[in-house]
Design a protein around this nucleic acid. Sequence first.
DNA 1: ACTGGCTGCCC
DNA 2: ATTCTGC
DNA 3: GCAGAATGGGCAGCCAGT
Length: 572
Amino acid sequence: MTFRELSEYFYRLEQITSRLEMADILRDLLERAKAEEIDKVVYLTLGELMPAFRGVEFGVSEKLMMEALSKASGVKVKQVEALYKQKGDLGETAQGIISWQGRGLSLVRVYEELLDVARTRGTLDKVMKLINLLKGLSGFEAKYAVRVIIGRLRLGVGDATIIDALSLTMGDKELKPYIERAYNLCSDLGLVAKRLKEGGLDAIREFKIQVGYPIRMALAERVSSAEEIIQRLRRCAIEAKYDGFRLQVHKDGSKVEIYSRNLEPMTEMFPDVVKAVIGDIKAQSVILEGEALAVNEETGEFYPFQVTIQRKRKYSVEEYAKEYPLRLFVFDLLYLEGEDYTVKPYIERRRALEELLTHTNTLRASEMFITDSVKEVEAFFEDAITRGLEGIMAKRLDAPYTAGSRNFNWIKLKRSYRGSLADTIDVVIVGYYYGRGARAKLGIGGILVAVYEPSTDTFKTISKVGSGFTEEEWVRLKEMLDKIRLDHRHPRVDSLMDVDVWVEPRYVITVNADEITRSPLHTAGRTLEEPGYALRFPRAVSFIREDKNPEDANTVEEIIRLYQLQKRVSVE
DNA sequence: ACTGGCTGCCC
DNA sequence: ATTCTGC
DNA sequence: GCAGAATGGGCAGCCAGT
């Protein structure tokens, strides 16, 4: 198969929105691919080169790609940038720029060149390889190669759609559960597709959990009240929700591998966790999942996420492990001594987990209790919040570990989900961004917002906002902002960040956020010595507030007070 | 030797 | 992470 | 309700330029 043929499939896929039709086109593609091509076809269709746990990255995004496009075509970078801003898609930009014919490269050849780009160290060499690749592709092919490289393929196809298509290649959808299961256990859809093509259903049935192949993570749905939890689950397990990062830990004898929520390899970053797992878990082979966060072992306090995230590093690992030891709150057991635990009910997994773990500084079971009382859930939730935890998790007692899916077997409840208006913030819009992909068609993708500083009568940026408005609202917003458009930053706006379009600080919107954090990028509360403040997970919750003047927005002082009211750390 | 721009990945 | 949209 | 694609703050690592 040539890369041009693959590109033609991509073109057809992006024209349609019906997932049934997509699956049918993909079925055709997967049937046409040879056994030695099909894994590459799957990876490329997912916009990847390999499954995440292989740890291969392009290291190329829009800036480097624009440079390569410019050098390959002779079009000035400024011009490429202008085209990109206008189209919101670097693939289409490439197609518009490239006028030469391609060399009709095979799919395998292009795949190998892409892999070569990913493996090349040094920006200059990378760009040279990119130029070389681009020169061998037609504009039509470059469109998709570019999108794969910068990680925005945007076909509307994900792993779930490919699984549908794979089951269609076997005649009907009866076999889908087997394919799905194989994928959830090995997290490598290219491998599943290849085995299916080579060995049929029998080969698919042979997939089993293997230490060293991450299992796709189960995810939680959200609700906005304790009542809804009990309504949905009745008697259920309630756990604390810790603000750290999720880890899946594989142990095979003295060999340990650790994977992130997105199945990236993380073993080297956490020698303290590796050591604890080897030393304190008596089982020979086991797969565990938990939330890791930095703790002060003397006081038992949890460090905030901004501290914990510093443990995600390649260098000075031991020093940081000493200064900010991790505690892994283990909440699930997926595999034990050759036995697949994902199929067992939660309550059984939990029982085995508690038997397996001894309470140590690094490793312990997450806090959990079982209840059917809304009152008890509410009380635990309130307590969790005052202790500085993120919220709570609720789990269906008889549910298996539903790998790779988000459903109501697990439910999360966070403070910010509750509809109360107490924690929302009124901010002033000071500029906007053109946006990419679907948003580019609206002409706006996000806004820069600020709070008021009365002492200087200025507006200090606190966040960007890119979600919460419907498409219709984004369009309406842009129309209003264009009427107060400025050529330069307004003199009353204090910002370190740039925007595509500055506007008069006139319109107030209400936003929600999970937390206020210290910020190196925003000017709200920023002094010569101290960083500013920003919003964590900002989202719009109102359209323009006609009843508010810009000076009625929340003030920097109010933000600082809200920041101080937040529990920073938690005592056990 | 240092720094700022860029990138990938945590949430 | 949250949110919106098409199916 | 699922799946996919928009979007957020902010951390460390890489590397070219100084």
